[in-house]
Simulated scan of single mutants.
Amino acid sequence: MNSNEAAFDPTAFLGSAGPGRSIQQFRKNQSIFAQGDKADSVLFLQHGRVKLVVMSEQGKEGVVAILESGQFLGESALIGRRRLSTAVALEDCIVTTLTNTVLIATLQREPGMCEFFMTHLLRRNCRVEEDLIDQLFNSSEKRLARLLLLLADFHPGDTAKSLPVDVSQETLAEMIGTTRSRVSHFMNKFRKLGFIDYNGHIEVYPSLRSAVSPDKARLPEGDARPFD
């Protein structure tokens, strides 16, 4: 590389429009793409959160993931598959859309972009494996606790975190594979134990970790704030 040539910056590339890439804004609850749509592009979430929803042939709907800023979605387009899920904005979002052709060419040309994208894929794969283990071996109560901790995204020193988006009990139930009534029961139990609080918005305390097996959760340690 020429000494005067700036190093390739994946975040700058993904944060700007150009040949084969465009930037779009989506309002809360707006569909970004739909299950079964033709897939000729991969998207990068610059800002906001998105839920991925799948619909069975029998019409049953389920939330399979909640994505946050800095993540890709619709990656299956690179292997010629139609959209496997419906992406819906949970809040106002800014999304960069890259055509398959441009993304593949950039991955081949720029090692920095290739590393950035591969790191994302590996993290996504690990999360899917952990979710599968969670479904196979943990009770629905532990699955709910783990999900709330993941959504809260604790950092060292945090004493409490409000979920950055409003997530209904129906959505939580779909994500952990149980009923809304069971989620309501567990939420009330967590609240009484001082693990969470909610009054129209869910606030999570790090002490909720005690409801999850540490070797499965892999989340930061933390002390609980006294429950009011």
Rank of each mutant, 00 (worst) to 15 (best):
E129K: 05
H120T: 03
S85D: 08
A89V: 08
D197V: 11
S3L: 13
F8G: 08
Q25E: 11
Q24S: 13
F117N: 04
F186C: 10
S139I: 01
P10A: 00
Q35P: 00
G36C: 06
D215C: 14
T119D: 15
V165F: 01
R127D: 14
T179N: 14
L90I: 12
E221Q: 11
F72N: 00
D134Y: 00
N188S: 15
L107E: 09
R82I: 10
E75P: 05
A6V: 11
D40T: 14
I176K: 03
L147G: 10
E174W: 13
G80H: 03
L73M: 15
L163Q: 01
R191V: 09
L149H: 01
R123G: 15
A89T: 08
M1F: 08
M187H: 04
E110D: 03
D158R: 06
L147P: 04
M175N: 12
T86R: 11
R109M: 10
S85P: 03
R146S: 09
D131I: 09
Y198R: 10
R83A: 13
Q25I: 07
K142D: 14
G200H: 06
L172Q: 13
R81P: 06
D228H: 12
C93M: 00
T11C: 03
T106N: 06
V63P: 00
Q46K: 13
D166H: 08
P10T: 01
A7Y: 10
Q46T: 12
T11V: 06
A77N: 05
F116D: 05
V165A: 11
Q35C: 09
N199G: 11
E174P: 02
L52C: 07
A217R: 04
C126G: 09
P10K: 01
E68M: 06
K51L: 09
L84H: 13
E130G: 06
C93N: 00
P156N: 02
H185L: 14
E174F: 09
K189A: 10
G15W: 01
S16L: 06
A145T: 01
K142Q: 11
G70R: 06
Q169M: 12
R49T: 07
L107H: 05
A211N: 06
S213Q: 08
L151W: 02
I23T: 10
T99Y: 07
T106I: 13
F26I: 07
S168V: 05
P111V: 02
M113E: 12
L43V: 01
L150G: 07
E5R: 15
V165L: 02
K28D: 04
T97Y: 05
L208D: 07
D197S: 14
M175L: 07
R49D: 05
M118H: 09
V165S: 06
L132S: 10
A77L: 08
G70A: 04
D215R: 15
S3A: 12
Q58T: 15
R81A: 13
I104S: 11
E5M: 12
I23E: 03
K142C: 12
T171L: 01
L148A: 13
R127V: 02
S140H: 06
P164F: 00
R180N: 07
P111R: 04
S85Q: 09
A77D: 03
